[in-house]
Simulated scan of single mutants.
Amino acid sequence: MGAYHAQLMDDLLRVAPPYSLPHEPDEDVPTVPRVKAIAMVTACLMHEEPTAFGLTTAEWTEHLWNELADNQGGVLLTLLVGATIPSVGAFLDKLLGDSIEGLANRQLAEMDPDEAEACL
C-alpha cells in the first residue's frame, strides 16, 4: 500500500499548481530569512506573540488556510500518507514555508522602514 501512495504523490506533484513564489527582495527593503519568518509566524500562531510582520494570529491563519485550499488534493494526500512517507510531509512544509516567507517579506516591503526593522 505504501508504494501505491508514493505513486499517487509523485503523480500529484507533477500536476500540482506551482508553490507560492517567495517575494523577490528589493535591495532597499529589509527581508527576513525563511527560517526566521516561519519561527516568528509560529510564535504568533501559538499566541506567544500578538503579531508577526503586522498580521494577527487570525490573519495568518486565514492566509495559511487559503494557501491550503488552493491545493486540497495535495493536502489531503499529505495528511493521509504523511506519517508513512517522509517526502509527503516535505510537500506540505514546502508549500506553507514558501507562503510564509513570501507574505512576510511582502509585509516588510509595505512597512515603514523603522517598523520593518523592529519586526526583525
Rank of each mutant, 00 (worst) to 15 (best):
L108I: 10
R34F: 00
D70G: 14
D98F: 08
T56L: 05
A16C: 12
E117L: 14
L103W: 04
A83S: 04
M40E: 03
H63Q: 10
A58C: 07
T57F: 08
L64Q: 01
L80S: 03
V32R: 12
L55H: 06
G2K: 10
D26C: 04
T61W: 11
E24S: 12
H63V: 08
M111T: 09
L77G: 09
A39F: 11
V32K: 10
E27Y: 07
R106P: 01
A116D: 11
N71P: 01
H47Q: 06
T31M: 03
Q107F: 03
A43K: 14
L55E: 07
V75Y: 11
N105F: 02
T61M: 11
A69M: 06
V88W: 04
H23D: 09
L45G: 05
L12E: 07
A37M: 07
A37E: 03
V35T: 07
K36P: 01
S20G: 03
V75R: 06
P17L: 14
D26V: 12
A109N: 05
D98P: 00
K94D: 15
I38E: 06
F91L: 13
A83P: 00
A16P: 03
N71D: 15
A90F: 15
L12N: 08
E59W: 10
R106T: 07
K36R: 13
D112M: 04
R34W: 00
L13Y: 02
